[in-house]
């Protein structure tokens, strides 16, 4: 009942059984957050360090709350306050943190592969909280959990992922995850944001949002990274919004019981209209709630047993 690996680096490395184990464990742990006393003693004495080289509110807070609800001690380090600004290498920072005997380091970095590198150097567990445009496994697991909870199963569903596929680690992790559980995944976005060869991950690619969302059971809208807009991936935000933004008119093309996911933070009126974001099909806040349970499950599975 444990992962083959000491780390959670990406969905690519997991098989469908591993994924189902995380989802069912999260299903049991979700109830803890509904209690009056939102804490179980399971991971008493374990120390978890959140090492974030990129800004994050949701993910970092979610990992921190998950650790605390399991009774682990959580320490947060953000880059602006760390010695990285003094020129220390990532490896040295990690080695120094490990010298303080944590059981797990949760790391986010703008460069793909940083968590994998740290996992090789460190004896403690490493959890990838987002590495560059590569993977964001805990996000994909909470997305799968949210869909499975509402639909009963993932198998046979059609998932449409819309937006900046090229820069999206959320898209990559979800393509791996949903296809491993038997869903059909279609990605859509403007040609400038569609990486060539994305089909090799097991999905279908199209430039037409209408094509992607037709008869979709689940639509996942990705955040347009407005800070990248100076690189000119599309002419204007208004044009992007008209072609690839989800509004109530486009929503009608999907199945009647469609679920809308978004990893956040939202650009209201750009990739998603406020009416859809706050509408009855929106799972956006459920995703956040479920994120805590999924991360509790990750900690339980990585840290709940005796060390080797």
């Amino acid at each position: 009942m444990r992962f083959k690996s000491k780390d959670l680096l990406g969905i690519e490395d997991l098989d469908s059984q591993d994924i189902e184990l995380v989802l069912s464990t999260a299903g049991s742990l979700r109830e803890v957050s509904e209690r009056e006393i939102k804490k179980v003693p399971t991971l008493r004495g374990r120390t978890i360090i959140n090492l974030f080289y990129e800004p994050s509110t949701r993910t970092r807070t979610s990992f921190e709350i998950a650790a605390k609800r399991m009774s682990a001690d959580a320490v947060n380090i953000s880059v602006s306050a760390s010695s990285a600004v003094k020129g220390e290498t990532i490896k040295d920072t990690a080695k120094n943190l490990e010298a303080m005997k944590p059981d797990c380091i949760v790391v986010r970095h703008s460069a793909s592969g940083v968590p994998h590198m740290l996992a090789d150097y460190l004896k403690c567990s490493v959890v990838n909280a987002g590495d560059g445009a590569h993977e964001h496994p805990s996000q994909a697991l909470l997305d799968m959990f949210t869909v499975k909870e509402k639909k009963g199963t993932i198998k046979g569903l059609k998932l449409a992922i819309i937006g900046d596929i090229g820069h999206s680690r959320v898209a990559r992790s979800n393509i791996y995850g949903f296809t491993k559980l038997g869903a059909e995944v279609v990605v859509a976005g403007p040609p400038t944001m569609m990486p060539p060869g994305i089909e090799r991950l097991g999905c279908r690619a199209t430039f037409s949002m209408e094509d992607a969302i037709a008869d979709a059971d689940v639509i996942m809208m990705l955040r347009i990274q407005l800070e990248r807009q100076k690189e000119s991936f599309f002419p204007t935000i208004r044009e992007y919004s008209m072609l690839y933004g989800l509004d109530e008119a486009k929503l009608k093309m999907a199945k009647k019981d469609v679920l809308i996911l978004h990893p956040g933070p939202l650009n209201r009126g750009v990739e998603i209209s406020p009416a859809v974001a706050d509408g009855p099909y929106s799972m956006i806040l459920d995703q956040v709630t479920n994120g805590v349970a999924v991360r509790m499950a990750i900690f339980y599975l990585l840290l709940g047993a005796a060390k080797e």
Binding site: M1, R2, S24, T25, G27, S28, L29, E31, V32, V40, P41, T42, G45, R46, Y300, L301, G304, A305, A306
Partner: peptide
Amino acid sequence: VDATLYRDDLGIKKEQPFLKKM
């Protein structure tokens, strides 16, 4: 009542038990 999260042998056993529902 699933007592798994409160067991005193977590962190001692080689494998953590499967969680059931509360």
